[in-house]
């Protein structure tokens, strides 16, 4: 019993220390800055933001290309 509690206590402390270290590292390494760039890192000039990349086969590409918002939201409102 006591050994189990010792191990549990030890692992809690060790774990807490690792969590704090990770957090400090993340903050220092700039992981909490510039989230926008991170989320945009999967887009590039070939597949830019605003351009859908998947439709059913045979569907006209013009339906989406260039006017993604219309295709996504239906016909434009007057």
């Amino acid at each position: 019993m006591t050994t189990a509690y010792l191990i549990l206590g030890f692992s809690l402390v060790a774990f807490g220390a690792m969590a704090v270290t990770a957090l400090v590292w993340a903050a220092r390494a700039g992981q909490f800055e510039n989230f926008k760039a991170g989320s945009e890192s999967i887009f590039d000039s070939g597949e830019p933001i605003g351009e859908p990349t998947d439709v059913f086969p045979g569907m006209k590409r013009s339906l989406l290309a260039g006017s993604p918002t219309r295709a996504m939201k239906g016909p434009p409102r007057p």
Binding site: F43, I49, G50
Partner: peptide
């Protein structure tokens, strides 16, 4: 987390939340 933004062409809403 990759497919949804990629297919609709819009970055994930909150990258912070995903972390």
């Amino acid at each position: 987390y990759y497919m949804i933004p990629k297919v609709i062409g819009r970055p994930i809403h909150s990258y912070y939340l995903s972390a």
